[in-house]
């Protein structure tokens, strides 16, 4: 089969995820350099028509089964393991998303293939792939050398335009292996977020709080500041994981993407997952006592003054 690059297509509710096109675009670029082929792998039930938007690939391998209709880690892993076992691709690219996490490491373990995760860049060096991973909360990057294997790629790493090519490539149906049908994990439904809360994607001024606020009790002074600014309080993931704020206030990869006029952060270190959700804010001002915090790389203005000193002083000054 030679230098085949396999892209795992992610979809939900019949819609193909942006990250798929990012991977297709990058995969196309790599395939053109190696003279190899680009194959998209699609799992679903009655999803064959979706191949029409995967024109960037030379071929679509489609596995159809009712247990693949909605993402099921057990069934999808089984299907991917079978496809990779049969085709032995040179490189398999999986998105480093909630779904992709359940596939990449499973494929690596079950097919005994090397895996590099959290990749933000892919390059060629001789016959090898060089995958750059973003680790330790974005503070450290590593370049890993792979002769062959699996790479899971963070969303937003590559432009998606190059991967958005209309046209239906050749579709090859791959019979679902027996273990797709069996198993004890059952998908029981999708749950949409509850409405009714402030829509932070439509708010012009956001006061964003992170781990540095230390305690739920300290949210009150953040609410006061946000009220004075006519804005709303939002947060990074740990605050929501601690149930101090509802999921509707979470900014970042697993939360919402926001683009306010003003984004004022307190005690947020700026992990890549958070940055992904707020980097397009017009004015970013960051308050964090850790001068090495990555948030200062993305902010327009910053200070290492203690937020517990700054917030009361600032609130007092605003009309």
């Amino acid at each position: 089969m030679g230098q085949e690059i396999l892209i795992v297509v992610e979809h939900q509710g019949g819609e193909i995820a942006d990250v798929t096109f990012e991977l297709l675009g990058k995969g196309r670029e790599l395939a053109s350099k190696t003279g190899g082929t680009l194959t998209a792998v699609l799992f679903g039930s009655g999803m064959q028509a979706a191949a029409a938007s995967l024109g960037a690939a030379d071929k679509v391998v489609y596995v159809d089964h009712e247990r693949l209709a909605d993402f099921n880690p057990e069934a999808c892993s089984a299907a991917l393991v079978a496809v990779v076992g049969a085709r032995e691709p040179w490189l398999t690219l999986v998105p480093n998303t909630s779904m992709g996490m359940d596939l990449a490491a499973a494929l690596s373990a079950r097919r005994d293939l090397p895996l590099v995760a959290y990749a933000i860049e892919l390059a060629l060096d001789g016959g090898n792939v060089i995958a750059t991973s973003q680790l330790y909360g974005g503070k450290i990057y590593t370049e890993s050398v792979l002769e062959t294997g699996v790479v899971s790629v963070l969303g937003g790493s590559f432009p998606d335009a190059a991967g958005r090519v209309e046209g239906t490539p050749e579709v090859e149906t791959f019979d679902a292996p027996d273990d797709v049908a069996t198993g004890c994990l059952r998908f029981t439904g999708l749950i949409e977020p509850e409405g009714g809360d402030v829509d932070i994607t439509q708010t012009e001024v956001l006061v964003a709080v992170g781990r540095g606020i230390q305690s739920e009790d300290n949210l009150a002074m953040m609410e006061d500041l946000a009220a004075k600014l006519g804005g709303a309080v939002c947060s990074s993931r740990p605050i929501v994981d601690n149930k101090w704020l509802p999921k509707t206030r979470q900014v970042g990869k697993s939360g919402l993407k926001v683009k306010p006029r003003i984004y004022l952060t307190f005690g947020i270190s700026g992990a890549p997952e958070h940055i992904e959700g707020m980097k397009n804010a017009e004015l970013i001002i960051a308050v964090n006592t850790d001068e090495t915090a990555p948030i200062f790389e993305h902010a327009d203005y910053g200070t290492t003054e203690d937020l517990f000193d700054i917030v009361p002083a600032l609130t007092g000054m605003l009309e």
């Binding site: 895996l115 060089i130 973003q134 450290i140 970013i284 327009d300 700054i310 002083a313 000054m317």
Partner: peptide, 29 residues
Amino acid sequence: AGSIVRRMYTPEKGEGAEMLDGSTEEIAG
């Protein structure tokens, strides 16, 4: 893991934030 790290590095810093200086009151101002 089946792959080797050929290089580990700290990402290049962008232009970054303009750091505000002064007393707490001045910075808040």
